[in-house]
Nucleic acid binder design. Structure first.
Lengths: 271, 271
DNA sequence: TGAATAGTGTCTTTGAGACAATATGCC
DNA sequence: GGCATATTGTCTCAAAGACACTATTCA
């Protein structure tokens, strides 16, 4: 064993086959496969997307309804196979555009973050699939419907996602955890907001993702004291959320990290 | 397009083949491949390990020398293929045991953290390899030599790793970044220490990984004030690092997170 | 005794949390 | 006016940073 990618590769059928590490069980040609018996074990690689937004003061997830077995009829995270010529990140962005129906331009500037990779042998009952999960944050958009297959993609409140297909519950939980944590020390929260937003909206993002109320004056002080987090939009443009005093508008600043961090109350995350 | 893992799977050659999503370019049977033309694109999946330790007040990395092309003779991170019946995490732990020559028991209790997955199409010149990278922290051990192939695994100071094979420089940099960040808000630093350690040793871990000196009294106060971070070892056992007053011994406590965090000085990470 | 490391105490500054008070809009 | 939201200000407490000082060991 030792180093992977160690031995030579032979081209077969226009497809690369690498030598596998010469382990103990060195049986070969189990059933007349066309592959070199010493070839690497083949996997399918997919991406899964945990696309989150804040709508109606709730955290919501973009889900698709499965039309085929297994898990037929169940909700699942959108995703798809990584193609031979693209990276997992490119695949994730492509799938996001396709699933949401958003323009490629919209999706292009979006913050897409690799979450982690799920590789349990039994995670797909049919075959060996390794999935690279990504998380994306979207502002509250009209509706995910748009082009083609997006028709069946739909926002579902985070706390109403029944059991999802495959290990997608786990992926979603991990995504939520990651986002909760990243709000503390990054400027990621603006990803949930439209280009121009009020501090109240930004605070609502925090409160929704964390599930705790925050003190408005203190939140305001903290955000404004962090250089580059948000910057005031010029002019007198203001916007109202309904009744009450109109709020000043801000947009995301150039900073990406928060120093010092904006820690959750209680010191410990609530389950 | 839509859900992955959506359509049926047909068994072929004892190997599962999933339908691929019916995309625009739906040509099939390109060159008489034995796979269903609608089959998933096959990938090799490997794990790469960024194994770090602190020796001689320096951050060091466990590297292996490549014996085969490409990158023959270059240093590389240890790693290997994921086997059909194991998860990437299991593969990482197995490879770690094999490469370091540590007992399976030692490796078993070790903190192994998934870093991220690297999937650029060109990252291995021979074939399509997706690699799941893991990070492990080890205390200052005698020498990585032990069984079998471990003979060629060796500690190399972090700042003396020339260009590594493949994209391993990138992986290593990401691992270092991740560890730097995690020291701030987790108790991970004890992973670099032997079962019993002095606060001076713990501080040295922080200073070495972060590359900045810390104030000893303040560090001490902070660590001791964090419940569950470390706990004093009973009795009067003390240990000396050379000359000077012997220091009290501590061991890792039950806590895993630091609240509030132990932030790096300067507010910004240094490159 | 002096060098080296361990450990204690204190002062200052910064920032978070609590919360009162004021401002501005809509009905 | 009355309600709702935005914004400013103040007071207090906890934690971080700086740093002086004491303690214990070895050469």
């Amino acid at each position: 064993m030792t180093t992977h990618q160690r031995q030579g590769v032979r081209e077969a059928d226009g497809r690369a086959a690498a030598a596998r590490d010469d382990e103990e069980d060195d049986q070969e040609g189990q059933d007349g496969q066309p592959y070199d018996p010493r070839a690497f074990p083949p996997f399918a690689v997919t991406v899964d997307l945990a696309v989150l937004t804040v709508r109606d003061s709730r955290l919501q997830v973009l889900l698709v309804r499965r039309g085929e077995s297994p898990y037929r009829g169940a909700w699942a995270l959108p995703g798809g196979f990584v193609r031979p010529e693209e990276s997992a990140g490119s695949a994730a962005r492509r799938e996001l555009a396709e699933e949401t129906g958003l323009g490629h331009d919209t999706v292009h500037g979006l913050h897409l973050e690799q979450l982690r990779t799920y590789s349990d042998p039994g995670r797909d009952p049919r075959m060996r699939v390794v999935s690279v999960a990504y998380t994306a944050l979207l502002p509250d958009l009209p509706e995910p419907r748009g082009g083609g297959d997006a028709a069946h993609a739909q926002w579902v409140p985070r706390d109403r996602t029944g059991p999802l297909a495959f290990d997608h519950d786990r992926i979603l939980a991990d995504a939520h955890d990651r986002i909760r944590a990243k709000l503390e020390y990054t400027c990621l929260a603006t990803g949930f907001c439209p280009p121009e937003f009020t501090l109240g909206e930004l605070q609502q993002v925090y409160e929704t993702v964390w599930g705790v109320p925050l003190d408005r004056p203190n939140f305001r002080r903290k955000v404004l004291a962090t250089p580059g987090f948000v910057e005031a939009v010029e002019g007198p443009p203001r916007r109202t959320g309904g009744r009450g005093k109109p709020a000043a508008l801000y947009r995301a600043g150039p900073a990406s990290a928060l120093h010092p961090p904006l820690l959750r109350p209680e010191g410990r995350p609530q389950p």
